[in-house]
Design a protein around this nucleic acid. Structure first.
Lengths: 206, 206
DNA sequence: TTGATAACTTAACACTGTTAAGTATATTTG
DNA sequence: CAAATATACTTAACAGTGTTAAGTTATCAA
């Protein structure tokens, strides 16, 4: 059915258009400047049309959060060149912090804002793919470090959550301006990397 | 001036009433269920009256965030009984996590939501007292641990941010539902404490 | 040509934070 | 004591938000 196919294509095109506008709007104005009506304005359709392609605002934010995870994975491609798993773990931490600092709005969506998780919660049989992949990679790497006796042994899950928790904590304290009044502006980012550095050092076997 | 005094008192009373209603509203319905109009409804005044006592919504949220910090300090009183600084550090971490899990809405305000920091930003000559006290206490404790050769030496600021980052990261990943799809529900909280445990162990001198 | 379907819009609901302008009461001043 | 002023509060409105029920228009099949 050539006609139906073309129709499907057209529907997909508008959906794509909405998403493109959403990315632009979100990238330029962040979560606060993001609204259904503004998306509609950008693509020159009425606000209600957007609801024919997406269930609600959370679904769009969920899609954007997935784009964020794709960006994040790309930013981690340089890890493949590092043979030593401990060095790779260190670099992974640095990449995580760097990604958060360079893409605070996407980071917000991926790890801080309720919206994407609310969407996952409302739709059945849907997993948190982005987070799952990232944590699985981290756990694998930690296991490798333990196997090669580069770090002190321990429960992989606890270690993984501890390391993730730390870098996430640092990035979100920075993003949410909880360091501004406590650390000299120019020292904030260096201190974050120093903290990571310290952590990698203490968990190393002597 | 007896009359002026009575007036001052009355003004202060209504301000107190607004704050009381705010605490109740926020405690029962969290940030999302919190609005200026609802506060006004509760105290049976018009919404605009609230603005005669507080600059804006952020100011009220700032006050609530300070109440949160007072609760937090109270929850840390049991630390005084612990002589060994390393054990005290461990307990401090546990208290932090426990506080976050038991008071997710106040935690939100204290460390996750932009509102209180936006208020601080707009008002000049105001510091982030709650955060400052907490971090100072943490740094002092770490210094004590280093002095007594209980943990490996290193930059106190980096270590403090690292530890704070970790517990904050864990709590906020939990609060913002980033663990739900990655860890079995009943394992989430135990894993958090295990992570802390692991961290304290690795930083100990052998 | 009629009837159905799909795509889209209008108008509205129920909210939000915030402000300009108005009112009524109490206090101070001439 | 009467007029002016200051205080405390309210009404009404602005400009926005997400979302939905109902209506319109155009396209396609019978």
């Amino acid at each position: 059915m050539g006609i139906n196919e073309r129709k499907e294509k057209q529907k997909a095109e508008l959906k794509h258009l909405i998403l493109e506008a959403s990315v632009k709007l979100f990238s330029e104005h962040g979560y606060d400047g993001f609204s259904m009506r503004k998306i509609a304005d950008m693509i020159e359709y009425s606000p209600t049309t957007v609801y024919l392609y997406f269930k609600d605002k959370n679904e769009i934010l969920f899609e954007l959060h997935e784009i964020g995870f794709r960006k994040f994975e790309e930013s981690n491609r340089d890890l493949l060149t590092i043979k030593n798993p401990l060095l790779r773990l260190h670099k992974m931490g640095e990449n995580y912090i760097k990604f958060g600092l360079e893409n605070p709005d996407y980071y917000d969506l991926m790890f801080l804002l309720p919206a994407p998780m609310e969407f996952i919660d409302q739709v059945n049989n849907i997993e948190w793919d982005g987070g799952d992949k990232a944590l699985t990679a981290l756990k694998g790497l930690i296991q490798e470090c333990i196997d090669k006796k580069l770090i002190k042994p321990g429960d992989v899950n606890a270690i993984a959550m501890g390391i993730w928790g730390m870098v996430h904590g640092l990035v979100s304290l920075k993003i949410r301006h909880r360091c501004d009044k406590l650390i000299k502006e120019e020292d904030i980012i260096p201190t974050m990397y120093q903290s990571l550095n310290w952590m990698i050092n203490v968990l190393e076997v002597d």
